[in-house]
Write a protein that binds this DNA or RNA. Structure first.
Lengths: 254, 254
DNA sequence: TACGGTCTGTACGCTTTCGTGCAGTAATGT
DNA sequence: ACATTACTGCACGAAAGCGTACAGACCGTA
């Protein structure tokens, strides 16, 4: 037992023991003091277990979330019940984007894939806060562009690239957003993300594992060789990262 | 010759003979008088032949365009040279969205698929105008959300739906944006839009034609039965339209 | 220690799409 | 009128993915 591999269980324990309300969310951290305290005073910290729903497709947005930990997926749900992931959001992001344009319903379902936490705010309070916080509005506008970029790149990737490349991309994107080398997700859920059969995920994951890029077992993927994994994925991962970096340097430079 | 089918040639003649500078662009039409005249005074009308490039992937945005006629495609171009369409824009839209968030480069290539025209403005003049036109800023923010919705839905559609459904969706979306029943595009270009082989387009188009939904010949598709075409496509077309409609009713209702 | 639930590996036949090449036909230009 | 270009139809084997099913491995709990 002593040298046993880390399991879901131990991750959950760590999560439960944590009392950390420190702000990790990039958008909140980037606000000037005045706006930050104005917004923070209204925020409520909330733990988000895996698979909790932050927004339902087609429904009115009740709360917005500044994600602090964990990983949220933006999913497009089809009538058949199948879903396709069109975006990923971690501590760098925000859930509730339509509100910044004056829209009130979310076109996508957004769920936590990896348990975490967020600072939460009622939609109408958020809209009010937005009016008095220009920096916040700007940051969220930029984040919206980044999510659009993600959707666009994923649209291309879904069309042109094989399952194993897409899996590698997904793992890299996830790792960027949750930190650490462990990605706690079963093949079943990965198959929903990539909109493919679980059997295909088994195959793709097997390829990556045999190449020594990852190890995984029962719902826990560990990235063993990050740089080789980057080499094994399609260009889409690098393309998104490059454009995001470019945008932020443009923004910082003025 | 008398009863000959309308060809590309006749469309081009019509285009060239037209002297119409009437504003059809929805965003401009939606502006209050003050903003509209402020913006319009700086705009320059420009004819846009098919395949003209409005923005180059990864490059700085020089001009923005309020599309007035024709059809622009937002393309994600991959290293291989293949491209995937991630969005469509006609008279309802605008090219240059990253600027509204303070970003200066376009992640996508945007080209005219169907010849048309636009009102054009230098990027820095646009940024200046934006500051004094809140309604414009809001409209563009909303349009950005709609383009994000498009990308997301297309990402799902590209993953899950067969070529002929996607082709039908594309034709419907195009028709909505250019008006009329004629869509002047060759199979070769359609294959780039749908990121598939031209041979696959031939097959899919043949299916639609045999079913009496469209006729086409040498670069000109004619929609013969709109409602049946809507029945023949996947849910994605209706899903996008429904959400857009919902958003606008939410916006109008307040 | 046994059990039930969850997760993973693998196999089968089938459909769709891919990559490619070639031939036929309509429009264009000189 | 003729050559050239552009567009379309089709055929071929190869490859990838799909839907499905089943068995084995692992875990927590009783």
């Amino acid at each position: 037992m002593a040298h046993k591999i880390i399991t879901n269980h131990s991750i959950l324990k760590f999560e439960k023991n944590s009392n950390d309300h420190t702000v990790h969310n990039s958008i909140l951290l980037g606000l000037p003091k005045r706006e930050c305290s104005a917004v923070m005073s209204k925020l409520e910290f909330e733990r988000l277990p895996a698979h909790s729903v932050l927004a339902e497709a087609g429904e009115e947005i009740e709360f917005v979330y500044f994600v602090n930990d964990g990983l949220a997926s933006v999913l497009n749900v089809l009538i058949s019940g199948k879903s396709v992931e069109v975006g990923l959001c971690g501590f760098e992001g925000f859930v509730g984007l339509p509100l910044i344009a004056g829209f009130e319903s979310s076109p996508s379902q957004i769920i936590m894939q990896v348990a975490g936490s967020a600072f939460k705010l009622a939609a109408k309070d958020f809209v009010a806060a937005l009016r008095s916080c220009p920096t916040l509005a700007k940051s969220l506008g930029q984040f919206a562009q980044e999510m659009g970029l993600q959707s666009a790149q994923i649209a291309a990737c879904n069309r042109l690239h094989a399952v194993d490349k897409r899996l590698a991309r997904w793992l890299l994107m996830s790792q960027d957003r949750i930190g650490g080398v462990l990605v706690p997700l079963t093949q079943e859920f990965l198959s929903h993300m990539l909109a493919t059969r679980r059997a295909s995920v088994t195959g793709a994951a097997g390829v990556l594992q045999k190449a020594g890029l990852i190890t995984y077992s029962r719902g826990l993927v560990k990235v063993e060789n990050r740089s080789k994994l980057e080499a094994a994925t399609c260009e889409c991962y690098a393309a998104m990262k490059r454009q995001a970096k470019k945008w932020h340097s443009e923004n910082g430079a003025r």
